[in-house]
Write a protein that binds this DNA or RNA. Structure first.
Lengths: 226, 226
DNA sequence: TTTCATATTAACCCAATGTTAACTCACTAT
DNA sequence: ATAGTGAGTTAACATTGGGTTAATATGAAA
């Protein structure tokens, strides 16, 4: 298991030290930044899985920084979590708009923080693996190739990514929202039928039985037994 | 969407009734307790997501109760909010130390209360239960699948959510209102028979014995012993 | 018995999904 | 430039089955 990388951003060095110490002890790879500018630099370099960032910072605040970070495509899978003082509700709205994934309120309770971090990383790690494999199907992100019972199938990008997503968790239902978010990206808006068509093309190529529709919920990949 | 569970604690039964009525109507699962001791019992059993508790109570006051509740690890994610009369600031300090997360001042304005509750729960709801399990039945929200003695049963959305709700608290009776609020949502109005039909479909699939009718009250999920 | 809540059955409706083909756009080869 | 190609999207229509309701039956309680 690859250790998850966490970037901590806060202008209070004490908090940074405290969190860094504890998270390192938990087995995470931690880097810190004292301000937004620094955070962007480090993020681009370090490519963290999770960023925990104070909303209130001198110079460039968390929300602005968040927006900048979201511009880097390499960080599109990075989860951004804000630290906010209790009751700063106005900031939450702006924060979500800027692309934040979650909030942690001060004062920080270590237990809450850790369980939250675990949960967040689990969500984000969905498609970390480069090669997914089930009994009769293998997918290789690096080579952009799908092998079905040893036979190579070539898929165009979107179909490939869609299949890769579904295969990343066999039997798990992915909602349309999640599929859109993952394959297309949150910002891009495409029609509702687009996804069906891609599903259909996939089914044409790999057979109808691999992708199951869960009406009203989404789609899932199932391994079929002959 | 699983409904959030709220525990109300106050020695004034009128307030309990009022809040219970309104919160249930909003789709929450509500339980009440008249004093601190009862609150601890119920909390340990009910595992609420949020506890709203009067500070001033006979016998065991809110702060002491809060301290007790915080000792239960299963309740570590539970948010505790105090009801306090305006100006009782001294209690706030003690309250935070005891582990309270927020305050609501009396007199209570319903709109303020609801928006506050929503905010609090959104923060706390990071990780709702994904799997519920009893001796012979397991339900998995991510896979949208029910396993009965290892045998996979697939259910349509509404049936699935209905079963999930009932299984979230085995042996607990869910009133029709609560079921509607949770599975359908308050705004949507459907006929009274709809629920019976779904119960019937469920029973057809998982067997008659799991879901018991409590006439005049509601339905409950019971684990059957062979 | 009478009443009221729930069970049962089957028919109906419609929103979600499937399907097909056309259209756009980028890229390539001619 | 022009035409060809294929991925991706959309539009238009078909289909399906989940969800709801209506009508009737059953059964428990008062």
């Amino acid at each position: 298991m690859k250790s998850s990388k966490i970037l901590l951003v806060d202008d209070d060095e004490d908090i940074l030290d405290l969190l860094e110490y504890n998270l390192t002890k938990e087995g995470y790879l931690v880097q810190t930044a004292l301000n937004g500018k620094k955070a962007i630099e480090v993020a681009n370099e370090f490519l963290p899985d999770l960023i925990i960032m104070d909303v209130m910072m001198p110079e460039m605040d968390g929300i602005e920084t968040c927006g900048e970070i979201r511009k880097n495509k390499l960080l599109s899978n990075t989860i951004i979590t804000f630290l906010t003082a209790r009751g700063e509700d106005y900031s939450q709205i702006a924060g979500y708009e800027a692309g934040a994934d979650d909030y942690i309120t001060k004062p920080i309770k270590p237990k809450v923080l850790f369980s939250k971090i675990k949960g967040l990383l689990r969500r984000g790690n969905i498609e970390a693996e480069l090669v997914e494999e089930t009994a009769s199907m293998k997918i290789d992100r690096e080579k952009y190739i799908v092998l079905q019972k040893g036979v190579e199938i070539s898929l165009p990008k979107k179909e490939f990514e869609l299949l890769a997503l579904l295969m990343s968790r066999p039997n798990n239902v992915f909602t349309r929202e999640k599929i859109f978010a993952s394959v297309w990206g949150d910002d891009i808006v495409v029609g509702d039928r687009t996804i069906d068509v891609h599903i259909r093309k996939l089914r044409e190529k790999i057979g109808d039985d691999y992708i199951k529709t869960v009406k009203g919920v989404g789609y899932k990949f199932v391994e079929i037994e002959s």
